[in-house]
């Protein structure tokens, strides 16, 4: 029951989905779309596991006073703040008590975590959490400048949700990706020393592609390097990428077959 049922489910649905690919009938396509909807919905429910895990790890860091535990509050504030902004929106330009409501909810979360983390005197943070929660509920009931929107997408367009996305999430993510330029360059310095033919090929190809947009070469040299770079990207690089893609494809198919036939059972975990 604990292990056989999932194995049978994987085998049946796996074989069915392979089979239906070769049946060009609209009923087959309908079932295909229908089952894809199913796994999409199941996948979204599974996201809650990830969010819960993030919450537990953050609370645990505060509880056990691990290194840098204070930053867990920043993570929790970001998480709950974003969720709150995504489900609420103002009716017009008036702010009303909206920001105080958000502050009350975030303080409720922080005080609850504080109460869980406290070994003695849990009463004070618990009382404060209750007080802030009461404040948040009262504002939600009586302040009519904003509302909750669970069923429609007003929250996605709300000022705070967009501001958090545009001015916090995107700048940090873009900067983290741009940081990789420096780390790749330092890694390349160590890895790219032309010690043999293969390393030299790697180095020369990389340098030519990197010099493609160097503006100080002049027209003739610049054009020649651009052509060599284009040839490298479209001929040898294409051949190498093709081989890798074909290898990856065969690897995915082999692994998928192992999963369907019950040889690979890692997805079931322990127990």
């Amino acid at each position: 029951m604990k292990r056989q049922v999932p194995l049978v489910l994987v085998l049946l649905f796996g074989l069915f989905m392979i089979f239906q690919y070769f049946v060009p009938h609209e009923s087959s396509e309908w079932v295909y779309e229908f089952l894809l909807d199913w796994i999409y919905i199941i996948g979204i429910f599974a996201l809650a596991l990830g969010i819960w895990s993030l919450y537990v790890v953050s609370v645990d860091k505060v509880k056990t006073r691990k290194h840098d535990w204070g930053y867990s509050y920043v993570t929790l504030a970001g998480l709950f703040g974003m969720i709150l902004f995504g489900f609420t929106a103002r009716h017009g330009d008036e702010w009303g008590w909206y920001l105080i409501f958000v502050a009350c909810v975030l303080l409720t979360v922080i005080m609850s975590v504080q109460a869980m983390a406290a070994r003695i005197n849990k009463g004070l943070p618990l009382g404060l959490a209750g007080l802030f929660l009461l404040g948040a509920v009262l504002i939600a009931v009586f302040d009519d400048t904003w509302s909750f929107y669970f069923y429609t997408q007003e929250g996605l367009q709300s000022t705070m949700f967009r501001a958090f996305f545009d001015y916090i999430m995107m700048p940090i993510l873009a900067t983290i990706f741009s940081l990789l330029a420096f780390f790749i360059a330092s890694a390349a310095y160590r890895a790219f020393r032309a010690r043999n033919l293969l390393a030299s090929l790697l180095l020369i190809a990389a340098l030519i592609v990197m010099m493609r947009f160097f503006p100080y070469f002049g027209e003739n040299v610049g054009e020649f390097i651009a052509r060599v770079s284009s040839w490298l990207m479209n001929v040898p690089n294409l051949a190498a990428q093709r081989a890798i893609i074909i290898g990856v494809g065969l690897g995915i198919v082999a692994t998928a077959l192992k999963v369907i036939l019950g040889i690979e059972r890692g997805y079931m975990g322990k127990g």
């Binding site: 796996g14 989905m17 429910f45």
Partner: peptide, 15 residues
């Protein structure tokens, strides 16, 4: 494991 089995079965079968 039941929903996981369904999810993995459909995904691998499609893949």
């Amino acid at each position: 494991r039941w929903p996981m089995g369904l999810y993995i079965g459909i995904s691998t079968g499609v893949a």
